[in-house]
Design a protein around this nucleic acid. Structure first.
Lengths: 337, 337
DNA sequence: CTGTTAGCGCGTTCAC
DNA sequence: GTGAACGCGCTAACAG
């Protein structure tokens, strides 16, 4: 791998003249520049990134840290971010935490090694400790959730969709279709994500004065299989409901399969509405009604926020909230008793 | 961000003693070590990655360069690779080329900047020019396809699934079920991927002395929507077939939808078998028979190959081929005329 | 317009 | 057992 010194030697100029010619900064005669650029071309010179970084502390990399990659929710986000980053010459360093709080802290700690310029951080569960670690790391950061820490407000941005509203939309949709017995299919109740979505579900019921029944709250693990098992058990247990709000598409799919296998017709005998609106919704029969969480937008905007802090040196906080959008398909039917 | 000099100052030792204490290499008294490690802990010292890299040329990063991320085929691969890399402290730098040959070359060229230690490279179409660029870049590389370049053989490894065999398996499965008029739903005929899969389709037909009909070869673009349009047009055109081999799951899903919307029952009136065996197959009704391409395995093994070249300094070529596996579900039925 | 010099933070070799 | 000194490759301030 050739260095500027190699080019300097070949051309007879000094290393600094070569550096100026290549960077375009500082004076350099047209003749020298031409000679040097040609030599660089021939020698296939590419500057050593580590050397540049050591000098000016710019890595041209953004870390995307997500809980899980096997969920299509996240690759839409990754895709959105990558698209926004590309024109700025930034690449994505991918890291996943598999929902593990320890791993999250570990990753944030490693970030002090300054091997990226900024971070897009996704977690299912923001705890005060996690937020502390994010602030502590001291890099431009966007979290893909809303979390306003008390005290200082300038340390990270939030780009997110209104999670409670998503579940609220889904639940209200069922209510409007005449459903009263609406089950909630969520993940681990301790995770912020499930809690927020549950809030929306609860609020929608309250607004319509429909009593919330604990027995209609099902906990699974955000996977298709887990939802299948949980819903099958729920049905075998004899619980009655006419609609299900599933906290993500994979669980919606698992739920639909469980219902069908149990002998229930979708949507005639049981309606299903999911959250996330990934491609999975278009694979099922009937096609699944779902709430679009605008993951691509979130990824894109999160990336823009990070770039804004890096390139334009923005030093104040910005938040951006997206309102989710219900996409009606064929898995929810009117219910008339 | 504290440096070893800061630690040196606090503890009264010199920077080199601190370096030795932290790295464990070279002599250092237990007392000094204890004092230094404690100070490092308190100051939350993390070594500056760029400085380390500049010194020893190790980045602890592997680039994964893929054509497209919105295809679940690839995230299974990414996942497999990430799992294999994690224990070695390696992270994935993600880059996509969107099927663009220019972008592929551009990425490979940038790699000369030594900002990763190795590369896992996926392309739909390996051309001699691309292979040249891969060799030229001079980094441990695994391509996720089979491509034996004439001449030198030590420049990159191949980890791949036998693509023709996958299509062969799918086609033979249909033949065994009694189908004779089997359509092929592929992508762009110019891409190696489509060509290879078509070869397998062709071979299976030939082996059973079933004539290949050009009119049963449908070209789409590896997307659900594209396949939906292409198959709808195909059906409207009055072409007759009793089974379809789709080159990936997304196209299989689009095809299934097109058939259903056209009034055909799956699998009673038309059978569908796809390739890739992603989660999409489990979302359709009926569940879709598909050929597992072991993408997770490919990603994992590719990562191990790269690590082997980096850590164990392997300097000879290795290839690894996986044989795809047909996973029977409910979208293919017996055909009796 | 160009060359010399110093330093980014770390690791390693060599004296002491 | 420890410190001084140098270099990885690039950039920037300064001098000529």
């Amino acid at each position: 791998m050739p260095t500027i010194y190699d080019i300097a030697e070949k051309t007879g100029y000094s290393a600094s003249t070569v550096a100026r010619a290549l960077s375009g900064k500082g004076y350099c005669s047209p003749r020298a520049k031409a000679v040097i650029l040609e030599a660089a071309e021939i020698m296939a010179y590419v500057p050593h990134q580590a050397a540049k970084t050591l000098k000016n502390n710019i890595t041209n990399k953004i870390m995307m840290c997500i809980p899980d990659i096997m969920n299509p929710y996240y690759f839409e986000m990754i895709h959105g971010a990558a698209m926004a980053l590309e024109p700025f010459g930034y690449s994505i360093l991918l890291e996943y935490t598999m929902h593990s709080p320890e791993k999250e802290l570990e990753v944030l700690d490693s970030l002090k090694g300054h091997f990226v310029d900024g971070v897009i951080f996704g977690s299912f569960d923001y705890t005060p400790g996690l937020i502390e670690a994010i602030k502590d790391m001291g890099l431009p950061t966007v979290i893909t959730s809303y979390y306003q820490s008390p005290g200082s407000f300038n340390d990270y941005d939030c780009v997110y969709v209104d999670q409670p509203r998503a579940a609220w939309l889904a639940t209200r949709h069922c209510l409007e279709k005449g459903h009263k017995k609406i089950a909630f299919l969520g993940g681990d109740a301790r995770e912020q994500n499930t809690r927020e979505r549950f809030e929306g579900y609860k609020r929608a019921l309250e607004e319509q004065l429909v009593p919330l029944s604990k027995s209609l709250v099902i906990h699974a693990d955000f996977t298709r299989e887990g939802a299948y098992r949980a819903v099958t058990e729920f049905l075998q247990h004899g619980e009655e409901c006419t609609a299900v709000v599933a906290c993500n598409d994979l669980m919606g799919v698992g739920c639909m399969k469980a219902c069908v296998d149990f002998g229930l017709k979708v949507p005639e005998e049981i309606s299903i509405v999911a959250l996330d609106n990934t491609e999975y919704c278009l694979c099922t029969t009937p096609a699944m009604t779902s709430v679009d969480m605008l993951q691509g937008q979130v990824g894109q905007e999160a990336a823009s926020f990070v770039i804004d802090r890096i390139v334009n040196k923005r030093n104040f906080q910005k938040n951006m909230a997206f309102s989710p959008v219900l996409v009606e398909r064929d898995s929810v039917a009117h219910w008339t008793t």
